[in-house]
């Protein structure tokens, strides 16, 4: 028998709420908001409360998908990244840097969000940087 409560941070948005994941024999079975988490002080939103459900969902995407002949198919990270890089180059050289846009996300860390805007501005040369929350 192996029961653990693992302290971690919610990945849903940028608030950084802390909670414990209840893990029984290697399987996540519950979420418990941390009372001493400075951002959430023992509270969570409905998404945070159900983190334990999405982590192990069979519908969760765990590998890159590439649309080939109209159908999405699983590919390796190398293939996905090579394809994205080559298409970005083709599109921006044919139509200019502002033909590309970059979506950041609250699900990324601060550092990752910094990198994506840096990549957009310094590598591709566009200010088209937006965020998934602005829907």
């Amino acid at each position: 028998m192996d029961y653990r409560t693992v302290p971690t941070t919610c990945t849903y948005c940028g608030c950084g709420c802390n909670f414990f994941l209840e893990v029984l024999d290697g399987r996540i079975i519950g979420t418990i908001p941390s009372k001493s988490g400075p951002a959430n002080q023992g509270k969570l939103c409905i998404k945070g409360w159900h983190v334990h459900q999405f982590v192990q969902s069979p519908e969760r995407l765990t590998r890159p998908l590439l649309r080939k002949n109209g159908n999405l198919s699983e590919v390796s990270w190398d293939e996905a990244l090579d394809y994205t890089a080559s298409r970005l180059k083709e599109i921006t050289s044919a139509h200019g840097s502002d033909s590309a846009g970059f979506f950041a996300s609250a699900k990324l860390t601060n550092e990752e969000n910094y990198l994506i805007q840096k990549f957009a501005r310094a590598a591709v040369g566009t200010n088209n940087v937006d965020h998934c929350a602005r829907l």
């Binding site: 302290p7 802390n18 414990f20 001493s36």
Partner: peptide, 12 residues
Amino acid sequence: QKNGHIGPHLFC
């Protein structure tokens, strides 16, 4: 008390 937080724990 773990990782700076107080939380539930199963002591075995």
